[in-house]
C-alpha cells in the first residue's frame, strides 16, 4: 500500500502548514494579518480532517469539515466588516 507511506508525509506537511499559520496568527503585526492567518487555519483544519477521514476510512469527519468551512467564512466576513465599518450589522 503506497497510501501507508503517503499519508504520514501528508500529515507532516499539513501540520507544518498549521504551525506556520499559527505563527503568523501570533505575530501579526496587524489585525488583517491575524484574520488572514485565522482563515488559513480553518482551511488547514479542513485539510487535516479530510486526511483523517481517508486514513481512518470514515466519512463522518466530512460533516465537521463542511461546518468549519461555513463558520470560517462567516467569521472572516464578520471580522472584515468590523474592520471596515467598526460594526458588524449595518
Amino acid at each position: 500500500m503506497m497510501l501507508n507511506i503517503v499519508i504520514p508525509i501528508a500529515y507532516t506537511l499539513v501540520s507544518l502548514a498549521f504551525l506556520l499559520s499559527f505563527w503568523r496568527l501570533l505575530k501579526g503585526p496587524d489585525a488583517p494579518d491575524r484574520i488572514l492567518a485565522l482563515d488559513t487555519l480553518y482551511v488547514n483544519t479542513i485539510a487535516l480532517l479530510v486526511l483523517l477521514g481517508i486514513h481512518l476510512g470514515s466519512a463522518i469527519y466530512f460533516e465537521a469539515a463542511l461546518l468549519i468551512a461555513m463558520m470560517g467564512f462567516v467569521g472572516t466576513v464578520a471580522l472584515c466588516k468590523y474592520l471596515l465599518h467598526g460594526d458588524i450589522i449595518e
Binding site: 503506497m2 503517503v6 499519508i7 506537511l13 507544518l16 506556520l20 503568523r24 492567518a37 488559513t40 488547514n44
Partner: peptide, 24 residues
C-alpha cells in the same frame, strides 16, 4: 488507483504547506 490517490494527496499537502509558507 493507489498511485492516483497518492499523487492527489501529496499534491494537496504540498500546496497547503506552500500556501502557509507564503503566509509566514
Amino acid at each position: 488507483l493507489d498511485i492516483l490517490l497518492s499523487i492527489l494527496i501529496l499534491t494537496g499537502a504540498i500546496f497547503t504547506f506552500i500556501g502557509s509558507l507564503g503566509l509566514a
